[in-house]
Design a protein around this nucleic acid. Structure first.
Length: 631
RNA sequence: GCCGGUGUAGCUCAGUGGUAGAGCACACGACUCAUAAUCGUGCUGUCCGGAGUUCGACUCUCCGCACCGGCACCA
């Protein structure tokens, strides 16, 4: 028996899970279930990453301790996974003892490899900011750009991992294992990063308190990624060097969204090399979901209404849609109308109706499943197609082409519908043709059983319902033709996918859009005094000229008129504003910001803009005299 | 600016050196076992634009445009 270990990332638990998390997890679940029915010994991990400064901060803003915050959030993940029918074998939390023990052992091994070194880090430090400022961010007077106070020269010790040392070995690994990173676009990206050189990376954070202390120097806290990545082995029992660990490591597939491939495909393998452990076999990255063509955004209220769609169409339809519609690896646009079409066309009409019509005929004419005594035209074709479908299906799963895999099954579903049509079974109820009728119905039901097996990794509940209606009391997960027993009492239940009428849905009151989260309780430490605020010199100015800066995609060089003087300012708004459209516009300029040189262009001040996904300039409501103070 | 990818029917996408396909949607027909379902037939395309190689390119090469990623840049 071969083994199969698949993981999702452990999701960063500083907010609730969204459709992106669900997509990754459902894809991994489909793989896990697929390998289980193939008879593999499967271990499927998901979990949450609970350490680091961001969680500390979010917890604080909610007035909770970090641990209490995590304890509140983790069940929200597990409940969603239950709802989505995720068959994970473990839900790993980085605050668990299991992980803590494992990470201690792993970091010790890393340290003993000799590739962790302590290096003094010295620089300009701002106490209120709790951070260093690189030379290039500062002007000659060395004051904090945020607090406007003189910076201290502080020397601090930090731990580094000698990532640079592994550049060649990684490159070699990539070349010898072309399938290591999938798909190729991501692989190419990482290769170009590798070829341009890796730098040693800091693995500890002294400014962070919420995390795991380095075992070889508890004064320092492990950087959150260094803490998180080894979860894939700590979850197996790496600390105890136990059987599960030896059975399942190295992992077959680390499944994830594309933005975190770098950590998984460069840093993590290098860490494993240093600790002298085997590397995972494949890093698999999928694309992002968009909603009706727009990037998901909390602040703009663009999100995928999982709850609503699941309530309308059911969990399996949601799972089906995600895996059927999107070509894995590419970004996919989530459209409720497409989900609706897929639901009615594929699930209700093709599959659901097929089951229902066959069971209807059987109920009316037979008492239990008849024996296939009377072969005839098309029978062999159906049987052969079942076999071929299964083979093609397997090939698609191997390359994560879930969409093609499902399409392959549906070709067979349609073929069986045609079989019913071609043989005109419903006309064969006369005594002399009844044995033939029974044979055809047997073939249809066996085809449906066969289909339910192939579908079970994707839509497990449905697969089970199909077999229940056929009369099987226990799920038969073997895709071999002819296993369906005769004389089973079928139970034609409710349609497994009742059609959904969109008009009815529309008549229902629309759900309220989620409001952007508000931080209600600002912490005292975030407050500034009025005199701090007064230090800022904000003025109304008019844009006189605007032009792009050579070699920079996001930058515009602006000349602004403040009434008394003119200034040159660099603004990172080129992606959102045409230069010409800016001319004549009134804007707000920060006058007393220290000058900086960006891309060889001097900037004397800063233009205010609201920005998250988009960037919108702040402008007086009506024209005011140039140079007017803004307060 | 550099590096990679994509651009094919209304939509989602396949595809091949010999001038294009599937599913959905749409139209018409058949059938009535079934969830107004199923089955059949049909429909639409300058295969991003331009140049080149070739007997012949949507498929190869080059140039360009658009979009999507990665890197730099975001005072």
């Amino acid at each position: 028996m071969s083994t199969f270990y698949v993981t999702t990332p452990i999701y960063y638990a500083n907010g609730e899970p969204h459709a992106g998390h669900a997509y990754t997890t459902i894809a991994a679940d489909a793989l896990a279930r697929y390998h289980r029915i193939k008879g593999d010994d499967v271990f499927f991990l998901t979990g949450v990453d609970e350490h680091g400064a961001n969680i500390d901060k979010t917890a604080e803003s909610e007035g909770l301790s970090p641990q209490a915050f995590c304890d509140k959030l983790a069940p929200i993940f597990t409940k969603l996974w239950e709802r989505l029918n995720i068959s994970n074998d473990i839900f790993l939390r980085t605050t668990s003892e299991l992980h803590k023990r494992g990470i201690k052992k792993f970091l010790t091994a890393l340290y003993e490899s000799g590739d962790v070194y302590k290096a003094p880090y010295e620089g300009h430090y701002c106490r209120p900011c709790e951070r260093f400022f690189p030379e290039k961010e500062l002007s000659d007077d060395k004051i904090c750009p945020i607090h406007k106070i003189p910076l201290e020269w502080v020397k601090e010790e930090n731990y580094f991992f000698r990532l640079s040392k592994y550049q060649d070995r990684l490159l070699q690994h990539y070349n010898e294992n072309p399938e290591f990173v999938y798909p190729d676009t991501r692989r190419n990206e990482l290769l170009s990063v590798l070829e341009s050189g890796l730098e040693d990376t800091s693995i500890s954070r002294s400014s962070v308190s919420w995390g795991i202390p380095l075992p070889f120097d508890p004064e320092h806290i492990a950087y959150v990624w260094i803490d998180a990545l080894p979860n894939y082995i700590t979850a197996l029992g790496y600390d105890a060097d136990n059987e599960r660990y030896h059975t399942f490591w190295p992992a077959n597939v680390h499944m994830m969204a594309k933005e975190i491939t770098r950590f998984h495909a460069l840093l993590w393998p290098a860490m494993l090399m240093a600790a002298n452990l085997p590397l995972p076999k494949q890093i698999v990255a999928h694309g992002w979901l968009t909603k009706d063509g727009e990037a998901l955004s909390k602040t703009r209220g663009i999100f995928i209404d999982m709850d609503g769609d699941i309530a309308t169409y059911g969990v399996d339809a949601f799972r089906y849609y995600l895996l059927r519609e999107f070509s894995f690896g590419n970004d996919g646009d989530y459209r409720p109308t497409r989900l609706h079409q897929r639901y009615n066309a594929d699930l209700a009409n093709d599959l659901g109706n097929l089951l229902n019509r066959v069971l209807g005929l059987l109920n009316k004419n037979f008492d239990g499943i008849p024996a296939p005594t009377t072969p005839g035209e098309f029978d062999d074709e159906i049987k052969q197609m079942a076999q071929k479908t299964s083979e093609t299906f397997d090939a698609h799963i191997e390359t994560f082409a879930f969409d093609s895999a499902l399409e392959t099954i549906w070709e067979f579903v349609r073929r069986v519908n045609r079989y019913v049509q071609q043989t005109e079974v419903w006309t064969l109820a006369k005594p002399e043709t009844k044995p033939r009728m029974g044979t055809i119905l047997y073939n249809c039901l066996e085809a449906l059983r066969y289909i339910s097996v192939l579908l079970s990794p994707f839509i497990p509940d449905t697969a089970e319902k199909i077999q229940q209606q056929i009369g099987l009391t226990e799920f038969d997960s073997v895709a071999e033709w002819g296993r369906l027993p005769v004389d089973l009492k079928v139970s034609r239940g409710e349609p497994i996918f009742p059609r959904v009428d969109l008009k009815k849905e529309k008549a229902q009151p629309k759900k309220e859009k989620a409001k952007p989260e508000k931080k209600t309780s600002e912490k005292k430490s975030n407050l500034i005094s009025f005199s701090d605020f007064q230090k800022m010199d904000l003025r109304v100015a008019r844009v006189i000229s605007a032009e792009p800066i050579e070699g920079a995609d996001r930058l515009l060089k602006l000349e602004v008129d403040i009434g008394t003087e003119k200034r040159q300012v660099v603004a990172g708004i080129a992606e959102h504003y045409q230069p010409d459209a800016l001319i004549g516009k009134q804007v707000i300029v920060v006058m007393n910001l220290e000058p900086a040189t960006i891309r060889n262009v001097e900037s004397h001040g800063m233009i205010l803009a609201a920005s998250d996904d988009s960037v919108v300039l702040v402008s007086p409501e009506t024209d005011v005299p140039l140079g007017t103070q803004v307060r």
